[in-house]
Amino acid sequence: MNLDLRIPMGLLFTLVGLILTLYGAGTNGSPIYASSLGINANLYWGLVLLVFGGSMYILGRRGQRRMEREPQKPADTDSGAARRGH
């Protein structure tokens, strides 16, 4: 397939991470965090997702570029279950 899944996935998690981080930073110290034992779950988890999403996206871009440089290997065309090695 010609779309590296890590690109949209990385984007989604980066955006979610960004939203959570910003919202967490804006609501730091707010009583809404009483439910999460006083931990600013939005800020910290937002940062985690930001890092995760960002690295996914970078890896995906790299993969996509490699895929465009060298055309995709054809799928297994051997008949039968045996794969003849090289």
């Binding site: 979610v16 959570l20 609501t27 809404i32 965090y33 439910s35 999460s36 034992l37 779950a41 939005n42």
Partner: peptide, 11 residues
């Protein structure tokens, strides 16, 4: 519902 504040609850 018990542990997540709004924001991460959406997630």
């Amino acid at each position: 519902l018990h542990f997540f504040p709004t924001g991460i609850l959406g997630l």
